[in-house]
């Protein structure tokens, strides 16, 4: 299988503080890959490096074999990698419809056009409607995103992330802060939208992780302790000591 995202001895330090201390990881095309680890392990920093939000201190990031180290977020996004955020990151005073539409525009090739009426772009309209339908928010299309409930904002966050049709999707704790039923709903949504794509997901809810993931990487203090299939991770002695045991207290 081809690799979708490959990290080569990636390091990131802020001043003297090392957050990512040499991570090498090969996420295969089409797999659902979960990244777990205790708080402060560097999971979100890892996402920030892959998506171009931070520059790595050393090491390299390859996207389908192409070196994307040092590219800016929009350049990486245009190459088919899209991400969501742990803290909801939407356009609060724009409607739900506008939020999703903004995320559709580039992928449809309209770029910085200021000569086309946006309401007449049939392909953009159709794609936006399709995404709203997928995230179950058609009825909320005209609502300003800022007044949605928390769970709705999380769903919109996923909608914005998938709207551009990226085939590699990074989701940062998509179910954090959700009730049980909301989580179930979100997992079903994630399963649906990641069909036929590569998914990398940071998640604290072990139920979600073992339910969804094809493979799991355990990140502890900026290093990968193990990468394997869920059953093998579960029985891995090192992982249990470092993380799963401790996580039981949550």
């Amino acid at each position: 299988m081809n690799s979708a995202v490959e990290l080569k001895d990636l390091k990131k330090n802020f001043g003297k503080t090392e957050i990512i201390r040499g991570v090498s990881l090969d996420v295969k095309s089409g797999e659902r890959h979960a990244v777990i680890g205790p708080n402060g392990a560097g999971k979100s920093t890892l996402f920030n490096l892959i998506s171009g939000r931070f520059l790595p201190s050393s090491g390299a990031i390859h996207l389908r074999g192409e070196n994307i180290t040092g590219l800016r977020p929009f350049e990486i996004n245009r190459r088919g990698l899209s991400r969501s955020f742990q803290v909801t990151n939407i356009f609060p005073r724009l409607s739900v419809w506008e939020n999703v539409r903004c995320a559709v525009l580039w992928s449809k090739g309209y770029k910085y056009s200021f000569w086309q009426n946006i309401d007449r772009l049939e392909d953009v309209r159709a794609r936006t409607a399709e995404i709203l339908d997928q995230i179950n928010m058609t009825a909320r299309a005209q609502t300003p995103a800022g007044v949605l409930t928390y769970a709705e904002q999380r769903a919109l966050e996923i909608g914005i992330t998938i709207a551009g049709g990226a085939d590699i999707i990074l989701l940062d704790e998509p179910t954090a802060g959700m009730s049980r039923s909301e989580t179930e709903h979100a997992v079903a949504l994630i399963r649906k939208v990641s069909e036929g794509r590569t998914l990398i997901i940071i998640e604290h809810d072990m139920g979600v992780v073992f339910d969804l993931a094809d493979r799991i990487s355990v990140l502890v203090y900026g290093q990968i302790l193990a990468t394997d299939e869920p059953v093998k991770i579960k029985s891995n002695q090192k992982v249990q000591e470092a993380y799963l045991g401790a996580a039981g207290h949550d």
Partner: peptide
């Protein structure tokens, strides 16, 4: 008319949240 074009709407998006704009493909 410009407010109702792709650029016009992305201007609003930049006003609201310039960081998120970078992650939907726009500079």
């Amino acid at each position: 008319a410009i407010t109702r074009t792709p650029l016009g709407r992305m201007c609003n998006a930049v006003r609201e949240n310039p960081e998120r704009v970078e992650f939907v493909g726009y500079n």
